[in-house]
C-alpha cells in the first residue's frame, strides 16, 4: 500500500473506550486509500461507523490499532500539539453541522480562518467567494439560527471548504437538501477534488450512490470497509 497517496488507512481498528473486549469493534482492520484528486463515497447503514471513520480520518478520534497516514505522514500517531494544527488542512462537515447559532453566517465562516497566517482582507475575500458558491451571499449578516435546515447544511459545507483544505471529510452532506442543491453540493465537492484535494463523503443518501462524479465507492458493514474504484480516469 502506498502511504503517501492522499489519505490512507492501514489496519485501522477502533473500539470505544470502556467497552468489553468481547464486544464487536466499530471498525476492524480497515485498509483504504483515499487518493489525492478523487472523491470517495463511504456508504453504510445507520450506526455502521461512517461518522466514526470520518472522525478517525480527521484525527478527532484515535484508532485503537492501525494508523491513518496523510501525505505520507502517520498523523494518527502524532501527539496532539502536532495533530491539532495539522487539522487546518482538513475541512470537516459534521453530521450535526456544529454551527454557532448566535453568530452570523459570515462569522461562522471566519472561525476556521482565524488562526491561519493570512491577512484579514484575504479572509474576507475567501468568505465572500465561499458564500457565493454556497448561494448564501444574501444571508452573510443573518444569524445562523434564522436559516433553514438546508441553508445551514450548505453553510456547514462552506465552512469546511473556506480555507481550501487538502482533505475534505463530509458526513451526510446532502441530508437536508433537495435534488437540485444535492447535485450542486456534489459538483462543488468534485471541483474541490479536481483542484487536488482528497474528498471523502460518508452518506447513505441514495442520490449520491448514483452520482457520476464519485471516483471510489466503499461500503461499511460489520466493522469492515470494502470498496472499489469507479472512475479510473481520476488524476
Amino acid at each position: 500500500m502506498e502511504l503517501n497517496a492522499g489519505l490512507v488507512c492501514r489496519g485501522l481498528n477502533f473500539r470505544w473506550p470502556g467497552k468489553n473486549a468481547d464486544e464487536p469493534p466499530v471498525l476492524e482492520a480497515v485498509e483504504a486509500v483515499f487518493a489525492q484528486g478523487t472523491v470517495s463515497l463511504v456508504t453504510g447503514n445507520t450506526g455502521s461507523g461512517k461518522s466514526t471513520l470520518m472522525h478517525l480520518l480527521a484525527g478527532l478520534l484515535h484508532p485503537t490499532a492501525g494508523e491513518v497516514w496523510a501525505d505520507g505522514q502517520p498523523v494518527s500517531r502524532w501527539p496532539s500539539r502536532h495533530r491539532d494544527p495539522w487539522r487546518r488542512q482538513v475541512g470537516i462537515v459534521f453530521q450535526h453541522l456544529a454551527l454557532i447559532p448566535d453568530l452570523t453566517v459570515g462569522e461562522n465562516l471566519l472561525l476556521p480562518m482565524i488562526p491561519r497566517p493570512i491577512t484579514w482582507s484575504r479572509m474576507q475575500e475567501e468568505i465572500r467567494r465561499q458564500l457565493e458558491d454556497a448561494g448564501l451571499s444574501a444571508l452573510a449578516d443573518a444569524p445562523t439560527n434564522t436559516l433553514s435546515g438546508g441553508q445551514r447544511q450548505r453553510l456547514a459545507i462552506a465552512r469546511a471548504l473556506v480555507a481550501r483544505p487538502r482533505f475534505v471529510l463530509a458526513d451526510e452532506p446532502t441530508a437536508f437538501q433537495d435534488d437540485h442543491h444535492a447535485a450542486r453540493i456534489c459538483a462543488q465537492l468534485c471541483d474541490i477534488a479536481r483542484e487536488g484535494a482528497v474528498v471523502v463523503i460518508g452518506s447513505h443518501d441514495p442520490r449520491l450512490r448514483s452520482f457520476d462524479g464519485i471516483d471510489r465507492r466503499f461500503h461499511l458493514a460489520s466493522a469492515t470497509l470494502t470498496g472499489a474504484a469507479v472512475n479510473q480516469g481520476a488524476p
Binding site: R87, L111, P115
Partner: peptide, 12 residues
C-alpha cells in the same frame, strides 16, 4: 471542541 476540529490549537 469545534475550534479544535477546525485546526485551532490549545495555544491559539
Amino acid at each position: 471542541g469545534l475550534l479544535k476540529s477546525m485546526g485551532w490549537t490549545t495555544a491559539d
